[in-house]
Design a protein around this nucleic acid. Structure first.
Length: 882
RNA sequence: AGGCACGUAGCUCAGUGGGAGAGCACCACCUUGACACGGUGGGGGUCGGCGGUUCAAUCCCGCCCGUGCCUACCA
């Protein structure tokens, strides 16, 4: 590609983005070789679901990861950013089923194989779309290594892990109470069965004692489930019931004798303090039943009608059964009361049907033994969270961890590598499809139809993507990865499980740090959600403002511990900054036409060395901020430098020098412009890769390497204290004069004459032209003569600065200005005096603080005297002229 | 119910034990040869409320009010 001769008036983002991304890929700059000797830096992408396309939350997360990767690349590391996507079992299956429904078909119509093929087609389409979105964003992923959770290699890892854990006794099969949607005829995860408020009733029912008089009363919202009761439970410390524990009650309607048991899950404060226990139809009761070894009686069919265990109520649906049971109880005198009761009940996320807890056989992973080392890893700082407060979330979950139900009744996913023998009913669990039963040798084997929970394969992502279970160069080079950047809501589902699996199978944590990025909300503060249709497509944002502007904006907003409220207009600031940078570069290029890149370096002037030192400071600050994931601080440091120092000051100071007759001075300035602009581009590149590349390529004297192939500049020597003082004074004087102009209402076209005291000559003697240029003064001179009454006087950097316009028209404004300034001074002075007059302050405050306060007071007093004197002169002059 | 955040300028948000900042918006002036997606200057805040610790609190502690989230769900 050829360099544009100069920069066009406007930056055209879209073509530049496409061009540079292509060029990066062509040059292979994102590929990380396992045998590269440079120190490695690695990140695995949180694999987006192939369910749909990415929203701004993904854009944020991937912008930040890209930022880190590009930053580390510029620091000379061998950076691997491992990309890929996740098959997202249930979500993807559901969206494809929805597609099918439009054709009037169900997955059952197609059959498992044909249905799975349909899902693969979907995956191909959306997987490609996601990659396109990431590339549009500028993501510097190593695409040669792109992975998908159902790739053969990753599927092999899944099988290997399942088989090993099974034989270690960490995976088992057991009956469990699952959330079942009777309408969808499928198991739901907790996430898919959100609680919704329901206006129900609380029924108080009398359970007579089996051996003697009296009864225990219990309360329930679902009276029909009493048909499956196998106990009544009370709290072990509840004195009211202690004498009843171990005795039996007679179950109303069915007459079965069931025991009274004690369990701590019972809240003595609620209702009667006694609760019916239905292990087959309530999660709490199920746990209780397990603890106490109670039987489970399932009274419900999968379609939510009652089964034969319900005796006379068989065949009724839940609502009918409730009505019948309540009537019968009432008739039998066992209904002790009914009252309204609002409560929260899980509903199917997709069809709103009331979810029923249902007993079924599932595969489980035993979590305690895996959680212990993972807990220790975070406690001992081998994995660190940013912000650190998320560690509490992690601890809380890990300390209360329960076994993980890993099987799903789905078709899309990793089919469980377990075969049941038709002859002996035993399970054979092996990595490769078996010929015969491991127990009896029979060849009558049938593979488990369930698939694994999606998170099972996601948990292996940091090492399965690098070729595990083989011992690969990639694993040795890039595992553990440096950081995982992700959202807080999957700390349990994903982060914790990766740490457990990484420790168990690799013997090492999967990442040293976890960065939890902010949540992106819409302008109304709502969480972005694909399913609810709330969300902005990053491609839409980039089409309007450009990828760089969007990236910059997102990074600038990524403060620790707070969500991002995102409206389209938010990006306008980012775009303005991109444009500002672009125009600064245009200015430079307009003045670099005659610069011979091979010319020897001229000695630098003060401004040149100053701006260079400011660049170094900004780069250092940005680097320090990025080290601790303070992206907004890094952005802010670079922004302030680029706009507030380079554009506002250096470029303005450089203008006279560029017009100067002195060729050496001109050349020094040109060389500094190139040097500092290049450094700025490198510094900004991680945030805005495209525009920096575009400008960099247009700068003279580059060696054909792109920004992406460069390194951060080594810091130059810093300014000495005298030079620093000169710069600070210079800028303060200019600002002071501008302020006077503004406050007196002097139009920019009006000539002013400036006078500085001769004492300022040492610092400012070389800079009169600059002062004149930046204040639009006709003349700047040194003199200690008493200023004429019509001169405006201000103080800057410890010097008195006179501004003269040549007439007395502004005397009134000047008087008001001085009065206001004096008022402010008095206020500051009284604060300082109040402190210094307090003996406790002198005695107890740090010495430096006291000294600073004294200096401040002295300065304020001197300034006050100077301004008072001026004010008196003006008052006198006005009095005499009136 | 428990836990965790948050409450700072009109808006969106940074920030620190020593009288508070940015961007946008607002006001005034400026079509100056990089840039009006711009320049120069300016106005604007009891830093949610009440107590406490401290020489000093917007910052640390307690309580309260408001908002959001997470976890557990009371059958």
């Amino acid at each position: 590609m050829s360099a544009p001769p100069s920069l066009p008036k406007r930056f055209e983002a879209a073509p530049a983005e496409a061009r540079w991304y292509r060029e990066w890929l062509a040059r292979g700059v994102f590929h990380a070789a396992a045998d590269d000797p440079r120190p490695p830096y690695s990140i695995v992408i949180p694999p987006p679901n192939v369910t749909g396309s990415l929203h701004l939350g993904h854009a944020l997360n991937n912008t930040l990861q890209d930022l880190l990767c590009r930053h580390e690349r510029l620091r000379g590391r061998n950076v691997l950013w491992m990309p890929g996507t996740d098959h997202a079992g249930i979500s993807t299956q559901v969206v494809v089923e929805r597609e099918l429904k439009k054709e009037g078909k169900t997955r059952q119509d197609l059959g498992r194989e044909a249905f799975v093929n349909r899902v693969w087609e979907w995956k191909a389409r959306y997987g490609a779309r996601i990659v396109a979105q990431l590339q549009a964003l500028g993501a510097s992923c190593d695409w040669e290594r792109e992975r998908f959770t159902m790739d053969p290699g990753l599927s092999r890892a899944v099988r290997e892990v399942f088989v090993r854990l099974y034989h270690e006794g960490l995976i088992y099969r057991s009956e469990y109470l699952v959330s079942w949607c009777p309408r969808c005829a499928t198991v739901l995860s907790d996430l898919e069965s959100p609680f919704q408020p329901v206006a129900g009733k609380l029924y108080r029912i009398r359970y007579p004692l089996a051996d003697g008089d009296g009864a225990i009363e219990v309360e329930t919202t679902r009276p029909e489930t009493l048909l499956g009761d196998t106990a009544v439970a009370v709290h072990p410390d509840d004195a009211r019931f202690r004498h009843l524990v171990g005795r039996h009650v007679r179950l109303p309607l069915l007459g079965r004798e069931i025991p009274v048991v004690a369990d701590r899950f019972v809240d003595p404060e609620f209702g009667t303090g006694a609760v019916k226990v239905t292990p087959a139809h309530d999660p709490n009761d199920f746990e209780c039943g397990r603890r106490l070894g109670l039987p489970s009686i399932n009274v419900m069919n999968p379609d939510a009608t009652l089964n034969a265990n319900a005796g006379p109520y068989e065949g009724l649906d839940v609502a009918q059964a409730r009505k019948a049971v309540v009537e019968d109880l009432d008739r039998g005198g066992l209904l002790a009361g009914v009252k309204d009761h609002e409560h929260e009940v899980p509903h199917c996320d997709r069809c709103e049907t009331l979810v029923q807890p249902l007993l079924s056989e599932q595969w489980f992973m035993r979590m305690k033994p895996l959680a212990e080392p993972a807990l220790a890893a975070v406690r001992e700082g081998r994995v660190r969270f940013h912000p650190k407060s998320w560690e509490n979330t992690y601890y809380h979950w890990m300390e209360n961890i329960r076994d993980w139900a890993i099987s799903r009744q789905l078709w899309w996913g990793h089919r469980i590598p377990a075969w049941r023998c038709g002859a002996c009913s035993e399970w054979t669990v092996v990595a490769d499809d078996p010929e015969r039963c491991a127990h009896c040798g029979s060849s009558d084997l049938a593979q488990e139809t369930d698939v694994l929970d999606t998170w099972f394969s996601s948990a292996l992502w940091p090492f399965s993507t690098m070729g595990w279970p083989d011992d690969t160069p990639e694993l040795r080079r890039f595992y553990p990865t440096n950081v995982l950047s992700t959202a807080f809501d999957i700390i349990f589902f994903w982060v914790a499980r990766m740490i457990m699996m990484g420790l168990h199978f690799m013997g090492e944590v999967p990442f040293r740090e976890v960065y939890i990025h902010p949540l992106v909300r819409d302008e109304k503060g709502r969480k972005m959600s694909k399913s609810k249709g709330i969300g902005t497509d990053p491609l839409d944002v980039m089409a309007i403002y450009g990828a760089d502007a969007m990236r910059w904006t997102l990074a600038s907003l990524a403060a620790q511990g707070r969500d991002i409220r995102f409206g389209m207009e938010t990006v306008e600031g980012g775009r303005a900054f991109v444009t500002k940078l672009w125009n600064a570069a245009r200015f430079a290029l307009l003045n670099l036409g005659d610069l011979d890149p091979a010319a020897p370096r001229e000695p630098r002037g003060l401004y040149d060395r100053w701006i260079r030192s400011r660049l170094d400071a900004a780069l250092a600050e940005a680097h320090a901020a990025l080290e601790v994931y303070r992206f907004n601080d890094a952005a802010s440091a670079l922004y302030q430098f680029c706009w507030g120092e380079l554009c506002d000051w250096y470029i303005e100071l450089a203008k006279p020098a560029l017009q100067a007759a002195d060729a050496k001075q001109r050349r020094a300035t040109q060389q500094t412009l190139v040097e500092v602009l290049s450094g700025t581009l490198v510094g900004l590149h991680p945030f805005m890769p495209f525009v920096t590349e575009e400008i960099f390529y247009a700068l003279p004297g580059h060696d054909g390497r792109l920004v992406v192939e460069h390194a951060y500049p080594e810091p130059a020597s810093a300014l000495d204290p005298v030079e620093t003082a000169a710069m600070e004074t210079l800028l303060a004087v200019i600002a002071a004069v501008r302020r006077v102009r503004g406050e007196l209402g002097l139009p920019p076209s009006l000539d002013v004459h400036l006078t500085l005291p001769t004492a300022a000559r040492a610092l400012l003697g070389d800079h009169l032209a600059s002062i004149a240029s930046l204040t639009r003064a006709a003349e700047v001179r040194f003199s200690d003569a008493e200023p004429p009454v019509e001169a405006a006087v201000t103080l800057a950097g410890g010097f008195r600065v006179q501004v003269e316009v040549g007439d007395k028209k502004h005397l009134g404004e000047e008087r008001r200005r001085l009065e206001k300034a004096l008022e402010m001074l008095e206020k500051d002075l009284s604060f300082a005096s109040k402190k210094l007059d307090n003996p406790d302050f002198i005695a107890r405050a740090k010495e430096a603080v006291v000294a600073a306060e004294r200096t401040k007071r002295e300065r304020l007093v001197a300034e006050r005297e100077a301004l008072r004197e001026r004010l008196e002169r003006i008052v006198a002059a006005q009095g005499s002229s009136a």
